Simulated scan of single mutants.
Amino acid sequence: MPRLTLVVLAAFLLLTVYLLATGQSGRDPNELVIWTQDRAPGRVVLDGLLGKYMLEVNPGLAELIRQNLKNPADFDRLIRSNPRPVDIKRSLKDGRVLDQYMKQHTIQRASHIYYETEEIRHNFIIAALGGSGPDLVYGPADMVGPFHDMKIIQPLEDFFPQEELVNFDPMGQVRLAGHLYMLADRIGNHLTLVYNKKLLPQPPQTTDELIALGKKLTKDLDGNGSPDQYALVWNFIEPFFFIPFLGGFGGWVMDENAHPTLDTEATINACKFILELREKKIIPYEADQDLANQLFKQQKAAMIIDGPWGWGGYVEAGVDIGLARIPEVS
């Protein structure tokens, strides 16, 4: 590679790191910036949060909305439901009143930027270590550990009085080393068995039923010796998707002292079970998230193990889906 090309690439890399470390440069100090890794429902939640934030920094705006709602009692309902700012505007008798108010009053601006999960983790670390970055991060709870160890986030106790924290489910309050670092808007990301009702009217309840059904649902339609339709697909190379089977065989990732507990018979038996599914061609020989999604959307797989982030895509692809628990290990 020519030396000039290397110099240009190095300069570009340094510029990228600099921009991240300085919060994309030129940041307005009066702007509230949120980074989110979830387009939906995360963006809906954040839009509601921003709408509520606008009201809190502008008490006059709240009063204006109360005066212009058809039913003043609707105001509390709107705020409780975390409405999008545009929904508040549509709730006014005359939307132009709010437009006029916005023009006459300077308010703090709030915005959020979308990143993929690993991007937001990586970019926030770079930006925060450089002394900048967003004010808030909306993402999964597993970010708290590395962010805490790097000392780039601060506890939330000083921002939320105890009388407000009691409104949150304790399972949604992410604590580490005696401090609160995250409040959840939902608890879960639970994996489920999603099945195509056209190919499978009733889902299996146990792993024995899964294997029995799998032998019927995996089909070589063109007779070339390779399956054209599989009984089940999922991203079995991703550890997160392995946990249900690890737990089903009586194991777990770590003990109460956060020590790894993977060197067990449960881990071995869970791995053997997945290998058995592959050997019997109930699942593809290899499958990541993209391949699994593609096969299920194309109705070349009767079932997929996935979370709520994927359900909408299957419906949009025209699949008549049903939801069930992952088959119990039998």
Rank of each mutant, 00 (worst) to 15 (best):
G42A: 11
L50F: 09
P85V: 03
Y314G: 00
F236R: 02
V174R: 05
H179V: 11
L92G: 06
T5E: 12
Q229N: 10
D263L: 10
P2S: 14
L275H: 13
L262W: 08
V174W: 00
K272Y: 06
K89E: 15
Y285G: 08
A127C: 03
V194D: 03
L165I: 09
G223H: 05
G95V: 05
E118M: 14
A266C: 06
L165N: 10
H122F: 13
A317E: 00
G178K: 03
G95W: 01
S81G: 09
A73W: 02
K89F: 06
I304M: 01
V97F: 00
D228T: 07
P284G: 07
P170A: 13
R325K: 14
G42L: 02
L275T: 11
G172V: 04
L200Q: 04
E163K: 11
P308N: 13
E163I: 05
S81Y: 09
N235G: 05
L183N: 04
K151Q: 14
A212K: 14
V174C: 05
Q37W: 04
H105C: 02
G248F: 04
P155M: 08
Q162P: 07
T261F: 02
Q229C: 06
M303H: 02
Y195G: 13
I283A: 06
K297Y: 01
A128R: 14
K89S: 15
N293Q: 07
A141D: 13
L277V: 03
L246T: 07
A21Q: 12
H259Y: 02
I107P: 00
E209C: 03
D288V: 02
V315C: 00
L262K: 13
T106F: 07
V194Y: 00
L199A: 04
V315A: 03
M1S: 14
